[in-house]
Design a protein around this nucleic acid. Structure first.
Lengths: 93, 93
DNA sequence: ATAAAATATGAATAGACATACATATGAACG
DNA sequence: CGTTCATATGTATGTCTATTCATATTTTAT
């Protein structure tokens, strides 16, 4: 996994998108409605996610349906959350 | 796992530091020598890693020894690499 | 107490990146 | 063909952050 992929995976709105389409494929408008994000922003993020191979795309009529490319992606995020919960955060501010 | 922790975990030089001290605890100078990074840069990164609970610190004499806080951290990075290898990257540039 | 070694901190800068806005492209349908 | 819906793209901008340099702090030894 290269740097770009790592970073693509952890940005918060992109993670939200992944969670969102993780349950069921969704078109761009639905995603932006669900997450309350600008359409163009969602589109930009989807482009990067696609570029990194994290999502798949399927055109049906006017709509583009996106889905998570591999269930392992969500599993990894899940494991990350578990790990985060078990760490002792040391606030130095 | 919050946003800050995610991002702390994936930055490339911080990952290098984690890999570096994963095998054996190290002091700051040794880390900067191993990775060929400025001492102050390593120190800044270690501060953030510590703040997020990803590394532990132990003072011995003049030196500060750092180690990975939990083996699960490296396991997670390992899983991320495996996942990355199995994804089809779609270069859109 | 002074010096040296090891590390931490502060500030300044440059580069990356998320976001927003405007506009372009493409697909269906009358 | 023109219109509308759905999405993509280009650009500009502000924000975040990695890095560097200079300096401060801490610890040990003389």
């Amino acid at each position: 996994m290269n740097d770009r992929l790592f970073k693509c995976l952890v940005e918060s709105n992109r993670r939200r998108i992944l969670y969102c389409i993780g349950e069921k494929e969704m078109c761009v408008n639905t995603i932006s409605d669900c997450l309350n994000l600008e359409q163009s922003l969602v589109s930009h993020h989807l482009k990067e996610l696609f570029r990194c191979g994290l999502v798949e795309r399927e055109r049906r009529g006017k709509k583009n349906f996106y889905s998570v490319a591999d269930p392992k992606i969500l599993e990894l995020l899940e494991k990350a959350h578990e790990l985060g919960d078990s760490l002792e955060v040391c606030n130095l501010d």
